[in-house]
Design a protein around this nucleic acid. Structure first.
Lengths: 233, 233
DNA sequence: CGAAAGGTTGAAACTTCTCAAGCAGGGTGG
DNA sequence: CCACCCTGCTTGAGAAGTTTCAACCTTTCG
């Protein structure tokens, strides 16, 4: 199950078998979390997401919820940066490996390579966050939405079906609005236009990317910044 | 000189003297970079910023420049995430320690604690990036500008003068526009209003925060997310 | 001295938001 | 099984915030 995490780490740092095993060992305590559940980032546990989709968000002073990033299988959430008014919310049903904080520290102590891989991974994730900022700050609504959907497809769907040109995302329109910093009403209109062009399909609580390649062109999406994190094996 | 970096790392992980020394040793090759210089993130070097202010940016398809974060003394830029259309630009004169990539790898190999501290630091920086997203996505222009200025003051000025209530930032209005995702014209008007309220002062290529405490209240700034990185010793 | 860069100001245009009302589906209790 | 409610989606119209265009000014620099 945590293979995907190991695979991701090995994008950065080839790990000897003992290191890989150490990671697998530490990920035994897996639990299911229902969709639409707020998961407080706890002080003593780290989360390794095994399946499902979640998002990190921040509440602003005026009651707005800003989603700051999505969490996909193979992502590690260490509760170090617990802030008031921020949290993690599952969007679909997720399974999550709960890792005691001190065991993780122990593993890093004993396997320096893992520490370094963690660092590289964190740096790569920062690149994704910057692309998010650029997307929200710089692109008009329709391309912004398209770009975000493309990112999610790549991070979420690609590993299971590399050549896939379509992918269903468990997002409500309000979720998308909070992620793109647009109003739900506007999101609805933008999605309507994307649907007219047969780029996406809309369901009650999910959005299907029908033609990923054309959507990428439309949203000027270049996946280089994903740094192959989560790419097919 | 790199003391500030060590100090930052030790926010996360107490380092033995040998580790601290290893970092200092690796930071000997210091060069000056003039203001307004594009510094390509090179493949073989890491940069440790010692003094000055720089920014990371990303060019978008329509020619917009989006600044995604600021780089302050004590920040480490490892060129791993070199992307097309993104780069680093000095805003003031900077001094930068150039560190050969392989030496840094070596240091991490020999000093596992340093790797772990690097990881923690990268995670903390991600928190700052998320706050940036939330700021751009969620706040109206005036508060957004105020918030950004507050962040910069905290990261840039505080270490030198903890209790300071004012601080001069080497930013042109266009820089601020690119950082906040607002047009230069609008930035100009917003700054005009902040000046009327005696919150900031405007110079030709710099902005002075005159009353940081009031500006923080106005921009609803809570520095918790800075995670004490760069905080006074 | 001229040119370039940064800043200032006004007016019109545009994107996006808000408010408001209405519809559809899915689950629940009667 | 139906009525109901709740959530999520849809649509229209007016309002707001922000952008664009354009002109002009000021300072710096070559």
């Amino acid at each position: 199950m945590p293979n995907r995490f190991v695979r991701k780490l090995e994008n950065f740092e080839k790990l000897p078998k003992t290191d890989r095993q150490a990671i697998v060992d530490v990920c035994q305590n897996i639990r299911k979390v229902a969709a639409r559940n707020v998961m407080l980032e706890p002080g003593d546990w780290s989360y390794l997401f095994v399946s499902g989709l979640a998002c990190r968000y921040q509440m602003l002073e005026d009651g707005t919820r800003q989603i700051t990033d999505f969490i996909v299988p193979g992502d590690l959430c260490n509760g170090y940066s617990v802030l008031p008014d921020s949290g993690i919310c599952s969007l679909s049903q997720c399974s999550v490996a709960y890792i005691p904080r001190d065991r993780l520290a122990q593993v890093m102590e004993r396997h320096p390579r893992i520490s370094r891989a963690f660092w590289r991974l964190a740096v790569a994730e920062a690149t994704i966050l910057r692309a998010w900022t650029a997307n929200i700050g710089g692109r008009p609504a329709d391309k912004r939405v398209a770009h975000l959907l493309c990112e999610l497809c790549h991070r979420l769907c690609a590993p299971d079906d590399p050549g896939s040109n379509s992918c269903t995302l468990p997002l409500s329109q309000v979720d998308l609005a909070d992620a793109t910093a647009l109003s739900p009403v506007h999101i609805n209109r933008v999605l309507g236009r994307l649907r007219e062009r047969k780029l996406v399909g809309l369901q009650r609580r999910s959005i299907t990317v029908e033609d990923l390649r054309r959507l990428m062109a439309f949203g000027q999406f270049n996946g280089a910044y994903l740094h192959d994190v989560g790419a097919p094996a």
